[in-house]
């Protein structure tokens, strides 16, 4: 399949260590992620899954180690790295007082890439047709998460970092989001996610990282 993103991009994590409140969450963590690959981070609650994702976004500084994007530390050339990254955390940043459409328009303006589709189309793809103009606080938790995930459709960036993307989403929607992720990876994108949900990707495309000791 033809790749939509540059094949040269590479994310390298070099001997990352992190402690939280005097407790070693993980140490000496290293991995490399190249286009067309997904990394699934697994582990029990409190094992530091979200912490890793926040480190990978550059929101948190590692105690030791470095994270390189195309050979450059992400803590140095922040803007270049961030223009390649989409993060959807546990708190996904969908404003209850704004409509789904307004929420997407804001994230579109914050992004540095041209959108291939309109905000309306992105919402329709996530099954939110007819809810564009309702205040987001009137939507269900699952629908609000779908609004957040619609950002991935709107701003085509190579690296997706997703914290439990399937939370609060119904079975049909889980399948849909799983397809979104596999399609993205097969198109030459990269994805890092924390979830226990099995992904329909062959071992060539999917790596698992288990944080349990």
């Amino acid at each position: 399949m033809a790749s939509e993103y540059s094949a040269k991009q590479i994310l390298e994590v070099q001997s990352l260590s992190c402690t939280r409140e005097d407790r070693d969450l993980f140490s000496g963590l290293s991995f490399t992620l190249t286009p067309g690959h997904a990394l699934q981070i697994e582990g029990p609650n409190g094992s530091g899954k979200t912490t890793i994702l926040r480190l990978l976004c550059g929101l948190r500084l590692p105690d030791e180690g470095d994270i390189l994007w195309n050979g450059q530390s992400i803590f140095e050339d922040r803007a270049e790295y961030l223009s390649n990254l989409a993060y959807i955390g546990h708190a996904h940043g969908v404003k209850g007082e704004l409509t789904p459409l307004e929420n997407l328009q804001v994230s579109q303006a914050m992004s540095a890439v041209e959108s291939p589709i309109s905000a309306d189309e992105a919402l329709e793809k996530l099954g939110l047709f007819g809810f564009e103009d309702a205040p987001s606080r009137t939507l269900s938790a699952g629908q609000r998460r779908r609004v957040a995930l619609a950002r991935l459709m709107l701003n085509p960036v190579p690296l997706w970092i997703l914290d439990e993307p399937f939370t609060a989403i119904d079975i049909h929607g889980q399948k849909q989001i799983e397809n979104m992720i596999t399609e993205h990876v097969l198109r030459g994108g990269m994805a890092i996610l924390t979830s226990h949900h099995p992904l329909d990707l062959s071992d060539d495309h999917l790596t698992s990282l288990n944080l349990a000791k």
Partner: peptide, 21 residues
């Protein structure tokens, strides 16, 4: 409220200059 619902994280992860936002 932006801190509580995660919008602030999204803002900091924007490639646009944070000071401007």
């Amino acid at each position: 409220s932006d801190f509580e619902d995660g919008s602030l994280e999204q803002m900091l992860l924007s490639p646009q200059p944070i000071a401007l936002l």
